[in-house]
Amino acid sequence: MKKKNYTTNRTTKVSSPAKPKIYTVKESTQLLPFLLDTLSQLSRNSVKSILARGQVTVNSQPTTAYNYELEPGYLVSIHQEKVTSAPPLIGMTILFEDEDIVVIQKEHGLLSVSAGQENEITAYRQLMSHVRTENPNQRIFIVHRLDRDTSGVMLFAKSEKVQQILQNSWQDIVKERSYVALVDGEVKKQEGTITSWLKESSTLKMYSSPYPNDGQHAVTHYKKMESNKFFSLLEVHLETGRKNQIRVHMQDIGHPVAGDKKYGSKSKEIGRLGLHARILAFEHPTTGAMMRFETDIPKVFLKPFRAGSSK
């Protein structure tokens, strides 16, 4: 598949600073060796000076670390002047960024997008500020959401065109969407599938309708990873992506997500909602390249299974 050639800056205004040179990493390496190889026309000291002066960014993040670990697909930009650091990101980390998309890992407690309060910190608002440090006209577009108290991988678009491609072809583009859920009680079955029709009540709470074809069809698959008499850790795959789908379906089988008071959980041990969007794999909307992002299971999810732990 033909990959897009990222060799020009997104900024096109005549008054903007000189465009950085952008290079795509082809294989795993460290930053200094990559720069020495890429800028082979320069002396080693000159390359080290460029790095030390803060003229290098990796996936749009400034760095001066010689041993910064690079992976295939990372974008290394070399600027004419020192890069002004973007405001620090709160409750989120950028995993990948190019001209079309931004992939982040969101922490629990951070809203994906505003729920009406103008000054509330959200992933969306922070990313908007982040991209506008390079181009004042750049925008961010919502592709999907995670609940405030759900952590994990999220994907955003950097144009309305890319947003529409992703949303209109979501079922085909997304190849894997996997969660881990810590739920109350011991799930007996090693694996299972939950199917129902989801509706929203007048109080904005989702529930499974007792009637077929009454609402949005929702299918959730799960496999048990660990369990004891107090908790079970499940790997959960979504066949459909409905609002609060996992939370409703876990309640339906009598094992609500840990800490999910709204859907029947009585546990408070981990101090948060026991739901994490662990893996997101998809075809890049413009290059067609396969992208896969896997994050660690939150350590607090494993705490109930450690030796000596008790409810």
Rank of each mutant, 00 (worst) to 15 (best):
N135Y: 05
T29F: 01
I194S: 05
L182N: 09
T133Y: 10
K158T: 06
R10T: 14
E27T: 10
I90P: 00
V180D: 03
L233H: 03
S232Q: 11
L146Q: 06
V56G: 08
L42W: 11
T24H: 00
D100Y: 10
K223P: 00
I142W: 02
E69M: 03
V183H: 13
H108N: 13
D296V: 11
I173R: 08
Q105K: 14
P285F: 05
S43T: 15
N244K: 08
F293T: 02
D260I: 12
R242Q: 13
F156T: 02
L51P: 05
H79F: 14
I104E: 01
F231A: 11
N5K: 13
E134D: 12
L204I: 08
V47Y: 07
I22P: 00
N67A: 08
Q251S: 12
I50K: 15
R125T: 09
A258K: 10
L31N: 04
D296Q: 14
T11I: 07
K13S: 12
G152Q: 04
W197L: 13
Y263W: 13
E81Y: 07
G152I: 01
L238G: 14
Q138F: 08
L89F: 07
A281W: 02
M92E: 12
I140P: 09
Y74H: 15
L32K: 06
R292V: 06
P20L: 08
R242M: 12
K2D: 10
P33T: 07
K161S: 11
N119F: 14
R145T: 05
E69T: 13
K266I: 15
L32F: 08
Q164I: 01
P72E: 09
L234A: 12
V14G: 00
K229L: 06
A18E: 12
N135C: 14
V47K: 07
H255A: 04
G152Y: 01
G73M: 03
E294W: 01
R177D: 04
D149P: 01
T122W: 06
F34N: 11
V187P: 07
G73V: 06
S267M: 10
A307N: 09
D260L: 11
K223H: 11
L238R: 06
A277K: 03
L32Q: 12
I194R: 01
Y207F: 15
F305P: 07
P17W: 02
M154I: 10
L42P: 00
T63I: 06
I270W: 13
V257I: 14
P298N: 05
K243Y: 10
T64F: 00
V187A: 09
K106S: 06
P87E: 13
R242D: 05
Q216W: 01
T84V: 12
S201I: 10
Q190N: 14
G54L: 09
M206D: 06
V143S: 08
I297H: 06
L233C: 07
M154G: 04
T195S: 14
E81W: 02
L111A: 07
E269D: 15
N5D: 12
D147E: 14
N45H: 07
Q163P: 02
Y207P: 08
P88H: 10
Y222S: 11
I279E: 03
